[in-house]
């Protein structure tokens, strides 16, 4: 069985979809990246990326700094286009629609593909207003509905009990870990389909990190999650699939337990055993 898997993986190494993976046939592909290339000016930052992403999975993206993992995750909701002089080729299909399609509005994409950032970035507003911001801009004005959404989202982000008595206080009064969960709640409030997380715990202490990790485990019941992390233990703990990026390329993509137990590529092994990075 093991040998079989390895041969199968070898044969599909470059174009990651896994023939051997039985799960693959059960789960839908939510986002599918095909032949994606990205340049910052002359710098070829992403090279021929092919990656599927499965529904209700946590997909971890690991790799050393500057390998393109952050760039990649920001491409998935087209935030990367805020950088001047960015050029992109290839396609990313979200639910079978190319997100780079001219008729696909970025604002629409971003209501389906939410994002949590590296550093908690709540708005300088009350906790309530932070969470209600998204629903409000999308046209929900009814106070009662907004209240329900805020409560549901804060519960979803496992922070409701901590903040329910001070919803009108400024979000900056919260601890870093709470702020990050508030940002997750803010993201949940627009009821996204996919959640992108760009090193969401790198600015947090270990205790808060643990809380966020547990939360991610809960969230995958309802959402598909892509998480960029430089913490390999974290990737191993929380993800179902892992992709290893190096110099803008996907070196290896597979089930997380396989990547960490029997990596296929020498470079992956070097990285996860801490020989560089």
């Amino acid at each position: 069985m093991c040998a079989l898997t390895i041969t199968a993986r070898k044969s599909t190494k470059a174009n990651a979809p896994l023939a051997s993976d039985t799960e693959n046939t059960e789960k839908n592909i939510v986002m599918n990246t095909r032949a994606l290339n990205l340049w910052y000016g002359e710098n070829h930052a992403l090279k021929n990326i092919n990656l599927p992403m499965l529904e209700n999975d946590v997909t971890a993206i690991i790799g050393p700094s500057g390998c393109g993992k952050s760039t990649y995750i920001k491409t998935l909701n087209r935030m990367v286009e805020l950088v001047p002089n960015v050029r992109i080729s290839g396609e990313i299909l979200y639910r079978d629609r190319n997100i780079f399609d001219k008729t696909y509005l970025v604002e629409e994409l971003r209501t389906r593909v939410g994002m949590v950032f590296q550093k908690p970035n709540p708005f300088p507003k009350s906790i309530f207003d932070n969470v209600a911001y998204g629903p409000k801009i999308h046209g929900i004005r009814d106070k009662k509905i907004l209240k329900e959404i805020v409560e549901k989202s804060l519960r979803g982000a496992a922070i409701w009990e901590e903040v329910k008595d001070r919803l009108n206080e400024n979000a900056y009064g919260l601890s870093g870990g709470q702020q990050q969960r508030l940002c997750i709640a803010r993201c949940l409030a627009i009821e996204p389909d996919v959640i992108l997380m760009d090193e969401p715990t790198s600015a947090l202490d270990p205790k808060s990190t643990l809380k966020v990790e547990e939360l991610i485990q809960e969230l995958k019941e309802k959402y598909s999650i892509i998480i960029v992390t430089h913490n390999m233990q974290q990737a191993a703990r929380i993800s179902d699939k892992t992709a290893f990026f190096l110099n803008g390329e996907v070196i290896e993509y597979d089930n997380t337990d396989l990547i960490f137990s029997t990596p296929n590529d020498k470079r992956t092994e070097d990285y996860i055993t801490g020989r560089f990075g």
Binding site: N77, M79, L109, P124, Y133, G134, I137
Partner: peptide, 27 residues
């Protein structure tokens, strides 16, 4: 006003105008 705040709003699907009126100007 830090860019992280603009990005936070844009990632929720806000247009530039909404980012400006509801995040940047209040901040």
């Amino acid at each position: 006003v830090p860019n992280a705040m603009r990005e936070g709003a844009m990632a929720l699907g806000a247009t530039k105008l909404e980012v400006t009126l509801r995040v940047v100007i209040p901040a």
